[in-house]
């Protein structure tokens, strides 16, 4: 790991100022992705601005319309939260599939979204549920938030504060995990919302999570695994690596989507 200057931010304003002052600064929350990347020297920030001591960023609130989760909420907290289990049980289940128990005690919702790892779980949930990412500057719809591999539309001095997930009628997430890294080889989040059906895929895309409009249209007509009969996603443009070929991932998208619909129907 290269040298950096460590700053423990006590508030969002201070953190924002530090980001503005140091061009090569990065935010650290759980650090479960960033610290490993710094060890490999794939990331070498000049300054680390630690958000962990900032108050009020880890609440979880369930209203009649939405589940609002603070950016600093740990995966372990989301997994066992009664509010999440009541409001969007699929999201609680998803949080329990991230990494391992010790990683889940540190990793955060905001960190996962900001990192936008193409095999991370939360991006699929945010897209499928039509989440809104609330930052220190604005509210960003999930559809506009992700901008390619490890990229988002967040500005250099912009900090996620919370994420609002509108309550779906039904939802489920199915994940085919790499047994070693526990990242998704393919994960599919399906949400039946009051106005539409959304299907979002993580792990498979060469440039991050994506939606599958063809699946969505079919499920909109009939929310059943059978509605996907004969439908598939093309392998072209999907990720291909030592873990799985693009063809295999394309196949898994169909399998996981069908399973997710079946699970959502309970």
């Amino acid at each position: 790991m290269y040298e950096f200057t460590y700053h423990r931010a006590s508030g969002l304003r201070q953190a924002t100022n530090l980001l503005g002052k140091h061009e090569e600064a990065k935010l650290i929350a759980g650090g479960q992705s960033l610290l490993p990347m710094m060890k490999f020297r794939l990331a070498s920030p000049s300054d680390l601005v630690d958000l962990n001591k900032i108050e009020g960023l880890n609440g979880i609130e369930l209203t009649s319309r939405a589940l609002v989760i603070g950016a600093l909420a740990r995966h372990a907290e989301v997994h066992v939260s009664p509010e999440v289990q009541q409001g969007i049980p699929a999201l609680a289940a998803l949080a329990g599939l991230i990494g391992d128990p010790a990683v889940r005690h540190r990793g955060t919702l905001g960190g996962s979204l900001a990192n936008n790892d193409p095999t991370a779980d939360y991006p699929a949930a945010a897209l499928a549920l039509g989440a809104t990412i609330v930052t220190t500057k604005r509210k960003i719809p999930a559809d506009e938030f992700f901008a390619g591999l490890f990229e988002t539309v967040l500005e250099a001095d912009e900090i996620i504060t919370k994420v609002s997930f509108p309550l779906p009628k039904k939802a489920a997430y199915q994940k085919f995990r790499n047994p070693a890294s526990r990242y998704a080889i393919v994960g599919v989040f399906v949400a039946k919302r009051p106005s539409e059906v959304r299907v979002a895929v993580t792990g498979a895309g060469a440039s991050g999570a994506f939606r599958v409009p063809e699946f969505e249209a079919a499920l909109q007509k009939r929310f059943s695994p059978k509605a996907l009969d004969g439908l598939s996603v093309p392998a072209e443009g999907l990720a291909s690596d030592i873990h799985a070929s693009a063809e295999y991932r394309a196949h898994l998208v169909g399998v996981m989507a069908r399973r997710a619909v079946a699970a959502a129907n309970g």
Binding site: Y6, I28, G31, Q32, L35, P36, L48, A76, P101, A102, V103, H105, R106
Partner: peptide, 9 residues
């Protein structure tokens, strides 16, 4: 809570 002390400063 249990954490991996190699992934925390």
């Amino acid at each position: 809570v249990a954490v991996k002390s190699c992934a925390m400063l």
